[in-house]
Write a protein that binds this DNA or RNA. Structure first.
Length: 711
DNA sequence: AGGTCCTCGG
């Protein structure tokens, strides 16, 4: 095998490995009985070192005059292909004087495993047209799989015809691969036709079809398929369990999930990293974090996917700190995050509005080279947007080389939440120009943008014309946007009429939108009626009582205020205290209205007094009507000064450089008085102040707010 | 001597 040996480029063992065996003969038996068998074993266990040693042995012991042993050559190609050394496999292949079908199939499988599906299709053409070889069932299994990987259904369909005529479709491997090709290329009908009309086939085909259905959102059909599979009494393999757990996760069907878990234990299925991750995911999506943590804690073997799955389970159930905490535990075991991990971490930071944490993660993303993954870019946009830094979100957006619909939606709704309707609509225009198809989420952002700009006609145009054209059925959330749109422009009666006449099953969010509008437009008559509806829908919602009591107070109906307080006492509803927080360097400072817990409390109060004195000449009048009537008049102003957001902003002004923006997060809606005060504070201090309240973002700058006094 | 299915984000 002389030419073959000479062609072998990478034979010298890696720098830190042992010297070639000729100097250490005891490492390898003097003669190898069955090198083919050993090479197969090395390939199957991905043991490149052993494989190379055997290769070396073959070179040294080979008779120079002997011609190439095709069996040995194929085994070597297989070895390097399996060990992710495709270029070496290719080199050996190219140097072969003669190749057979096995040589081709081994090499093709190597390319396929390295994600180079198109290369496989090219090889196939050469094999047939140049070498004139006849493809067999092995080749077609690989070809169909390559078609799945590259989305080349047309080539796959031609091969489908061939395997049908030649009878190769009777091989289960071929049939499974074909079914999988159709399933993954969203031709599920064809997949089911092959599955049902060609005799034979096994559990793998069912796995493929159910997965294909799930991936394209046909959950009901996937469930039906599961039923058919169960009725055929097939033995499930571990992929079936993974598939069915995926189905449970999608349906959030905990009962089925537990049942399948039980069956899995009974049947003594080996739980590998794939299966355990699917289980963690299922429990997470079904809201059972404790079960997910249980599965995770018992794992013998964990990989990055297991870690990301448990992290995601915490995140999806609102345990953002726990999700972030997983990162350091991972670090202890020297596991490095990947793009999915970063996406979960960034979204957890977004959930906490932890800008500092998000910034740190952004740095890690840049350093570790994951910044160009779409899911990471999307998560960065989401994080910056939810943490109140919409400019940074936009920078990430503009910097992205590859965008998907989630990217566009994140930017549109980000601008909308920040009250930047114009920017949101511009991004929407760019999205259309870029050829990205909007979906129903896009239109929620677009309609909210119309609302914040008061573009009533445009809003209706998007709802009735454009959405129809694209084929998106308006849902509850779109109709709610219309309620907001009408309300915002002051057409409260129209909004109320829209809710009364449209055949929509309105939820509490829609009613609250109308209620808010009544509050902002001081239409307390309608407001009180709407509030009654909201209270009936959720008797425990503190916000509604607060709003209602506020409306009574503003219309000086103290009897109403008393009534509401009595109602709240009876129903044992406690008023949630106002809490605001602000991040200064590495620390989050928390302020609760009316308390003096902060160590610098007296300086802060002094600062608030100073600020209020500065803005009074600009027209600030404390809104004492908003304060409950049983408080002494001279105390009312004090009450207002100690609102948590005022304390947090004052502290931010004390502790940050003069040009730094201040970001405050508040648990409740910002009150009228604070809103008016902060506008003027932004003017006298010349600062950008961003407040995220329970509903939205307020960007205060130069005496104005991005919400245009509507929130 | 060679081949197929699967887990983590919105």
């Amino acid at each position: 095998m002389q030419s073959f040996i000479a062609a072998m480029p990478n034979l010298k063992l890696s720098r830190n490995s042992h010297l070639p065996f000729v100097f250490k003969p005891k490492l390898v038996p003097a003669s190898i009985d069955d090198p083919i068998k050993l090479l197969k074993k090395a390939a199957d266990t991905k043991n490149l070192r052993t494989g190379k040693t055997i290769h070396a042995h073959l070179i040294v012991s080979g008779e120079p005059s002997k011609s190439v042993d095709i069996f040995q050559a194929n085994s070597l190609i297989n070895l390097y292909a399996k060990c992710d050394q495709v270029s070496i496999a290719r080199h050996l292949f190219d140097c072969l004087p003669k190749r057979n079908v096995v040589s081709w199939s081994a090499l093709m499988a190597g390319y396929l495993h390295n994600g180079m599906a198109l290369e496989v299709l090219g090889l196939f053409k050469t094999m047939v047209s140049v070498d004139g070889l006849c493809p067999n069932e092995y080749i077609f299994a690989t070809i169909f799989s390559s078609c799945s990987g590259s989305g080349r259904v047309e080539e796959g369909k031609q091969c489908h015809g061939y395997v049908l005529k030649s009878g190769l479709l009777s091989y289960e491997y071929v049939k499974n691969a074909l079914v999988h090709m159709y399933s993954s290329c969203s031709e599920v009908e064809s997949a089911m036709r092959v599955l049902n009309t060609v005799p034979g086939g096994d559990i793998l085909s069912y796995n493929s079809v159910i997965n294909g259905l799930l991936e394209h959102g046909h959950v009901r059909e996937a469930m039906e398929m599961l039923g058919m599979m169960v009725s055929q009494c097939m033995d499930w393999d571990s992929v079936t369990y993974i598939t069915v757990f995926g189905l449970c996760a999608r349906l959030k069907d905990l009962r089925l999930g537990l049942q399948v878990h039980g069956q899995m234990l009974k049947n003594d299925i080996k739980c590998d990293v794939f299966l355990s991750s699917a289980m963690i995911d299922m429990y997470g999506k079904c809201g059972k974090v404790s079960n997910a943590a249980n599965v995770f804690d018992r794992l013998q073997e964990r990989n990055i996917v297991s870690w990301t799955a448990i992290m995601a389970a915490y995140f999806q159930n609102g345990y953002f700190e726990d999700a972030l905490g997983v990162l350091s535990k991972m670090g202890n075991e020297d596991i490095l995050p990947n793009e999915y991990t970063f996406a979960v971490l960034l979204n957890s930071s977004a959930g906490l509005s932890a800008l500092r944490q998000g910034d740190l993660l952004h740095t890690c993303v840049e350093k570790s080279g994951f910044k160009d993954y779409v899911i990471v870019g999307n998560a960065l946009i989401n994080m910056y947007s939810k943490c109140g830094n919409i400019q940074a979100a936009n920078e990430v957006f503009l910097d992205m080389t590859c965008r998907d619909s989630v990217t566009w939606n994140a930017m549109i709704s980000g601008f909308s939440h920040h009250g930047l309707g114009k920017e949101a609509l511009n991004v929407f225009q760019d999205m259309l120009a870029a050829g990205e198809c909007p979906n129903s989420i896009t239109f929620v952002g677009v309609l909210s943008a119309c609302a914040s700009l008061g573009l009533v006609q445009e809003g209706f145009y998007y709802l009735n014309q454009l959405m129809k054209q694209i084929g998106i059925e308006p849902g509850l959330e779109h109709h709610t946007c219309i309620v907001g749109l009408l309300s915002r422009s002051g057409q409260l009666d129209q909004a109320e009429k829209y809710m009364r006449t449209m055949p929509v099953k309105w939820d509490i969010v829609a009613w609250r939108t109308l209620l808010n509008a009544c509050h902002v437009h001081r239409n307390y008559g309608l407001g009180k009626q709407v509030a009654e509806v909201v209270v009936r829908m959720d008797p425990n919602d503190v916000g509604t009582y607060t709003l209602l009591s506020n409306m009574y107070a503003k219309s000086r109906r103290w009897d109403g205020v008393v009534k509401i307080r009595k109602l709240m006492r009876e129903r044992n509803i406690k008023k949630e205290p106002g809490v605001s927080w602000v991040e200064i360097r590495n620390t989050t400072h928390i302020f609760v209205s009316d308390d003096n817990m902060h160590p610098e409390s007296s300086q802060i109060h002094e600062k608030v007094g100073e600020l209020l004195a500065k803005i009074k000449p600009l027209g600030y009048v404390p809104d004492i009507a908003a304060v409950l009537h049983d408080v002494e008049d001279e105390q009312k102003e004090d009450y207002l000064s100690y609102h948590s957001e005022k304390l947090a902003i004052a502290y931010g002004l004390m502790k940050t450089p003069t040009n730094a923006p201040i970001r405050v997060i508040k648990n409740l809606r910002i009150c009228d008085d604070c809103h008016a005060a902060v506008k003027l504070i932004s003017k006298v201090t010349n600062r950008l102040i961003i407040v995220r309240d329970a509903n939205r973002f307020h960007q205060f700058q130069d005496g104005r707010c991005s919400c245009a006094d509507y929130w």
